[in-house]
Design a protein around this nucleic acid. Structure first.
Length: 285
DNA sequence: ATCCAGGAGCTTT
DNA sequence: AAAGCTCATGGA
């Protein structure tokens, strides 16, 4: 991969195992919208238009100085070919890898990821996106025609009713209380530097954050690739396809770690994306 | 109308 | 420790 910048377009050339649409439409990110031949969002303080042409990823609205931030965001330096190859003996996962070809696990801003997945609890992807979008439009800073994700201070100052107007429902109080804890010094950057188990334990101390949401923040924000968010879809896959019969969650996660190894979270994302679009294949086995 | 969605938290066994 | 109940909301 090499990088060029012409004053307008920041281009990452010759990225293998990368599909922009798979990365943005697989349920790990909620705020990118299709536009023209690409996608638009406000992320990390930039109003960005992203477009893929072959193995080139073009970003408009981003200065050259932000290239490292976006390499990290899209996880462009990791060898996904090697990770995929390590699962060659798993037929179902290989099927998922083919279906989700080019999917990379993003490393999204911590606070936004945290609040987004608090909203995801007992919710569906379409509604999650709409709620987050409404919160940004109502309370985020305007930026080049879009809206940034609101700061912890902004969300902490909202009333429960204001967030319920955005559709957050009973999660409104979790959002406010968690935002307040961040304002009071709960340091997400410090958590991201802890060992995975410790980071996860710290995150579950936040209101509205259980094991599953903590794993989402650990994986889609902090880049802990062994984190395996265990939701209803993954339960179907592990029990239905991998014939796991236990009921204990921790035992199930142990099974997952031994089955999928250090990149379990990446495997999880392939499986999640595949399962959601092939419900019959998952439930029939 | 009933069930479900990338669950969490509190109460009861 | 483990199972049960409740929490908004909108689409199927």
């Amino acid at each position: 991969m090499n990088i060029t910048y012409d004053g307008d377009r920041l281009i990452f050339h010759e990225i293998s195992h990368f599909s922009l649409s798979q990365c943005l439409c697989c349920g790990q990110a909620f705020r990118w919208k299709p536009q023209g031949n690409g996608f638009y969002s406000v992320v990390m303080g930039y109003a960005v238009y992203a477009e893929q042409n072959g193995q080139d990823l073009t970003l408009i609205g981003v200065p050259e100085s932000a290239s490292a931030d976006f390499i990290r965001y899209f996880d462009l330096e990791r060898d996904y070919g090697a990770i995929q190859a390590s699962y060659i003996n798993d037929p179902f996962l290989t099927e998922g890898i083919c279906y989700a070809n080019g999917l990379r696990v993003l490393r999204q801003p911590y606070f936004e990821t945290l609040i987004s997945f608090i909203i995801s609890a007992n919710n569906n992807v379409g509604r999650i996106s709409r709620i987050i979008d409404t919160i940004c439009v109502n309370y985020g800073e305007p930026l080049d025609g879009g809206f940034d994700f609101p700061s912890p201070e902004t969300l902490a100052a909202l009333s429960s009713d204001e967030l319920k107007t955005c559709g957050a429902g009973y999660r409104a109080d979790y959002i406010i209380q968690t935002a307040k804890k961040i304002c009071d010094g709960f340091d997400l950057n410090a958590v991201a530097k802890m060992p995975y188990e410790k980071a996860r334990e710290e995150l579950t101390g936040l209101p509205g954050v259980g094991l599953k949401v903590a794993d989402c923040v650990a994986l889609y924000g902090m880049g802990f690739l062994q984190a395996f968010p265990l939701d209803v879809w993954m339960r179907r896959v592990i029990c239905g396809v991998y014939h796991y019969g236990g009921k204990n969650n921790n035992a199930l996660l142990d099974f997952v770690q031994t089955t999928f190894g250090e990149h379990a979270g990446i495997a999880q994302q392939y499986l999640f994306h595949y399962a959601r679009h092939h419900k019959e294949a998952v439930c029939a086995r």
